[in-house]
Design a protein around this nucleic acid. Structure first.
Lengths: 201, 201, 201, 201
DNA sequence: GGCTAAACGAGACGGTACGTCATGTCTTCTT
DNA sequence: AAGAAGACATGACGTACCGTCTCGTTTAGCC
């Protein structure tokens, strides 16, 4: 997915927007975000760590939030495939598992948690949240369509509601309550939601 | 609940900790937080707006986050009664309604959303989230106990899981996706979760 | 005097040194200098105003001062003919008049004052001052020679001293003290100096 | 003359305006100005050299020129006594000598020349030039009054004109032409000007 | 009613980061 | 191959807050 980013292609030259060292800058940005949260993410530190001058960063992104947004979008951290396990329960369980993994995994939790927090509180980053979740929703819709075809689910169930419940539960547990997440958390959550939906049908 | 706070009691004098103008400071803190988010919350602005010297603030709270934490704790914004409608569904629906109201109401959304975002991303405020939700959980436990007594719910259901699902769904809808919240959102969400739980019983 | 400058000759191509748009660049340089003093004279503004790329400027002049020096040298602003009125007093009075005119005239004062100030303080432009005044001195020497021939002046008088007195008086009045220059200033100054010299003879 | 400056009085506390380390700051300012001219005078360098934080400087002076102005005013460099030798010629000769000394002396020329150049070109410092010369003029007026009393000078001679001639000649020689100043320069200049004035009487 | 100690106002200070601007160099891309 | 375009490192600008510190000055509670 990074194929078109500046500085990555040996043959082509700067096909997109961004400084030559864009990759270094993104990396530094996410490292700092992960390391100390939004407050530790300073443009000067990004510049120092990425070996680029501060003005170069300001040349390409109007402010810190724009840089953060670009770094998150470009990163593959917040993107993941839609699973297709053959059952809705399996698909959703996989989704929840991945969410939990992102938010608690050693390598990812720093960035992901900080990014979510930053995005939630900052109007200038709100588009990011919307975009990411809209993406997710679109991708996940296929899962629900398949489930309806299979007869696992009534067509009247709103996929958005289901995803709000599942993703929100992970957020509440991990970020809000900072409680441990048991191994069967994903299965439990999915079971409750799906059976709640099924009964309605 | 404010009975012990400085400056509020007519008869007694400063029985607790805090500056004389604590109320003014808290008010200013939350106004600024609500007005422009965490970034607009500066100690200097709090001092100016509350008519207190900056030094006084630092005398009582070690840093900005401590002040914010105290302001949130002291405020009644994030506290609400546990409803007792006679049915679990009614109780939980009321809870979700209040959450939605807090996060979308004109007077409260600014502060509440900003506070949640700030708390989520800042380790120095993490205790706040834990404490508040723990409080909630404790209060809400009575609701679940009554429901089990009434036979509405199996005793094996984990109240924390239910609350994660409900609160998380509101958060996802309002803060993450920033999508509109339909009038029947609370009922829908509670229905799915409760029926999902009931089936298990 | 501009005949040999690049970009001015229709037939020939770049007969001298300098970019094709040299005239535009010089014009922009002096406009900016006159408009806002040395501080407002930036290479970027010159480039923008003259429609040339910054790089082009740096290709031809090593730095800002070199550009300024070239612009001043090329300009006819600081060059003026040696008057020949038939009397030394008339010649010198004409000279002082012109100096005053340059330093106070609406069209010229901006550039001239800024140029003099810049030159005075900057070693990299010192050659300019020396050159211009040396030029003047050489040109003016004829005036003094004629005066000696006419018996108006003792041969022992140092023309340089006379010019220091006259030019310096204008500078002190206009640039240093920023005092108004009365109409008879030139005559007064010349009278004092010449009579002071005559007495010595 | 520094008695009232901040940080200098042992007993009293901050009687005037200015930071505690004002003296250090002024010193650093003039050192930098003398060392590398106006361009080398940066607020950051002043801060570093004076051991003060940059913000402290900006707290007290709105910009670089204000600092420079204050440093020059405070310094005793540009102040000197009015001589009283008993004769006008002696007094003026002493004045010219001191001017030459200031502009060429090893310890002072850097600062004085740079200050004069900076002042001449910068409207924001123009008041300085006016003030200093006005001061001088006022002080020197006594010299002229005495000379008129002694019958050395006609009362109709304008002291300002005389000082313009004398000071201007020094400036022209030293700063503009950067020519060597012979030992008898002061005497020569004064002789010409005074005899030129005397003749008129 | 005066004394003492806590609390406060006032504000200078060192420090970090902000976002901007200009310098002069260097690397591309174009022609 | 030359020259225009413009990205770049560098460094200073002037601003905003941070959190610390030192002083005097209230203010309250107790003799």
């Amino acid at each position: 997915m990074d194929d078109k980013l500046p500085g990555t292609l040996p043959g082509s030259r700067r096909p997109g927007r961004g400084p030559r060292q864009a990759q270094e800058i993104y990396r530094a940005t996410l490292e700092l975000l992960g390391g100390g949260g939004y407050d530790a993410l300073t443009v000067e530190a990004v510049a120092a760590r990425s070996g680029v001058n501060k003005t170069t960063i300001y040349r390409w992104w109007p402010d810190k939030d724009a840089l953060l947004g670009a770094a998150i979008v470009q990163s593959s951290l917040l993107r993941f495939d839609v699973p297709d396990t053959g059952t809705l329960r399996g698909d959703l369980s996989g989704l929840v598992h991945r969410l939990v993994g992102l938010m608690t995994g050693e390598a990812t939790s720093g960035v992901v948690v900080a990014a979510l927090a930053a995005v939630a509180g900052r109007p200038s980053l709100a588009w990011l949240a919307r975009e990411f979740v809209t993406d997710r929703l679109a991708g996940e819709r296929a899962v629900f369509d398949r489930a309806v075809e299979r007869g696992e689910l009534s067509g009247s169930v709103d996929p958005a509601l289901v995803l709000d419940l599942l993703a929100g539960a992970v957020w509440s547990r991990v970020m809000l309550r900072q409680a441990p997440v048991p191994d069967d958390f994903a299965d439990e959550v999915v079971k409750v939601v799906l059976e709640g939906c099924a009964v309605r049908a």
